[in-house]
Design a protein around this nucleic acid. Structure first.
Length: 434
RNA sequence: GGAGGAGUGGCCGAGUGGUCUAAGGCAGCGGUUUUGAAAACCGCCGUACCCGUGAGGGUACCAGGGGUUCGAAUCCCUUCUCCUCCGCCA
């Protein structure tokens, strides 16, 4: 979340920044100024009375020992009155603070100066393109046809088990999924310096609040409960490893010389995607459950911008090693994720759709997540704690990588060439129907 | 799931209603001493927020929330976490 104090002091600047996302967004600030003033005022009043009570307590302590019952009783009655006033003020202050907090939690981050203007994904400028767009002297098939013909992809049985938007991988399909996870984790740990993490796949609401999924995006999540759907301790299935991995350091003060911290994690991801029905109804592109290898970095604020380039490069390396043609776009302000100030999407080429499709999203959150999750560090051993900057990116979405491999490396006879980098894991250089 | 026990500052640990601003120790930082080091001694040593240009002042926080009281780390209720034993179990 944004710094409430900064927002109160820079309302115009904040409003301008949010307006780059959308006009409605900047309206979220309208009540912020007066509310913050009210908070200040209440803190002043409350603390003044609390100070009086503290002073009186000392006196009461002496009176209690002195044995002057009458004076004691008189003072006690006065103080009862004071305590009542304090209680009222504290309750009021609590209400205002909760309201400030609630509002701040639903205000998105301010787009970075280098984030391009624009309203939708159509306005995202292409930064660079890697590799040659492959050409085929036959009509390239969609991955679900290729997968069905190879006997490795099964949506009918998945539907029997779990309904729409689930999939079953068979045989070499399942193995390819596993190979991709292992390949990606190996690359990031051995060559890019990431520490591998295996986190829980279910988290508390606090973790989701820390990274920004809650309170605004509850509808996109799967929530679990035992008896009571409103149970405040109910757990959610993670929509991305970003959530458990970023929150690993919630409520911590890190030492400056530990930074940057770099973690990579494989997890399944669970998304309800309530708003997206009708899109990508066929195939593996949009599923309620999918695998992803994520990379997450905790860095000093000064390094945020350069670390985004570094992290994006690490995600790109996966595609490069696999030989998959892709491009990089910069998300425009209107298309930017809630917590991000700047995001690069990697888009892989899908010949059957004659389009580039998102396979990774690499974002810089400045101190927005760190403030929510209270992730701080000391630049100097004795220095004041400061908020870190967090970044993360998919490295990569595994299911979509599998899709890209099937589609880009498909052959006219229905077989699929296995990329060099995966052959040791797969034990073969080609997937064929038998 | 059942029965017990526990949750204090980076760590250990004292503290069961009023010198409250949490004893003491360890670790850490600064200094004295020393040719240097160790040891010893002295000092410092949490976080957030509010007021103040500043020096500084104030408030809150002893797992979380609520309550009793003039006053709570200390009593009561509740949630969570951890430990021990029993049951079940990949």
């Amino acid at each position: 979340m944004l710094d409430g104090r900064w927002v109160a002091d820079h309302l115009d600047e904040a409003r301008k920044g949010l307006a780059r996302r959308s006009p409605e967004t900047s309206a979220l600030l309208d009540a912020a100024g007066p509310l913050f003033e009210r908070r200040r005022e209440l803190i002043g009043k409350t603390e003044a009375l609390q100070a009086r009570r503290n002073a009186a307590n000392e006196e009461m302590s002496k009176l209690a020992k002195g044995g002057d019952k009458a004076t004691f009783a008189a003072r006690r009655d006065e103080l009862k009155e004071l305590s009542g006033q304090i209680k009222t003020l504290e309750d009021e202050l609590g209400k205002v603070e909760r309201e400030v907090e609630e509002r701040l939690l639903s205000i998105p981050n301010l787009p970075h100066a280098t984030t391009p203007d624009g309203q939708s994904s159509d306005d995202n400028p292409v930064q660079r393109t890697w590799g040659e767009q492959p050409s085929y002297d036959f009509e390239p098939k969609p991955h679900w046809e290729i997968g069905a013909a190879l006997g490795i992809l099964d949506f009918e049985r998945a539907s029997k088990l779990s309904g729409a938007r689930f999939s079953v991988l068979w045989g070499m399909g399942a193995r390819l999924e596993r190979a991709l996870v292992a390949f990606m984790l190996d690359l990031h740990t051995r060559e890019h310096g990431y520490t591998e993490v295996y986190p829980p796949f279910m988290v508390k609401a606090a973790a989701l609040r820390g990274t920004g999924q809650l309170p605004k995006f509850e509808a996109d999540l799967f929530k679990t409960f035992r008896n009571d759907p409103e149970d405040p301790d109910a757990l959610y299935l993670i929509p991305t490893a970003e959530v458990p991995v970023t929150n690993l350091h919630a409520d911590e003060i890190l030492e400056g010389d530990q930074l940057p911290l770099a973690y990579t994690a494989y997890t399944p991801c669970f998304r309800s995607e309530a708003g997206s029905y009708g899109k990508d109804v066929r195939g593996l592109i949009r599923q309620h459950q999918f695998d992803k290898v994520e990379v997450v970095r905790f860095v000093p604020p000064e390094q945020g911008a350069q670390q985004l380039e570094l992290l994006t490069g690490h995600a790109e390396k996966v595609l490069q090693r696999l030989g998959l043609h892709y491009r990089v776009v910069a998300l425009c302000a209107g298309d930017l994720g809630f917590s991000s100030v700047k995001t690069y999407d990697l888009e892989v080429w899908l010949p059957s759709q004659n389009a580039y499709r998102e396979i990774s999203s690499c974002s810089w959150f400045t101190d927005y997540q760190a403030r929510r999750a209270k992730i701080r560090f000391r630049a100097e051993p004795k220095g004041k704690p400061r908020l870190v900057h967090t970044l993360n990116g998919s490295g990569l979405a595994v299911g979509r990588t599998l899709v890209a491999i099937l589609e880009q490396f498909q052959q006219e006879d229905g077989s699929v060439i296995v990329p060099e980098a995966l052959r040791a894991f797969m034990g073969t250089d080609r997937l064929s129907a038998r």
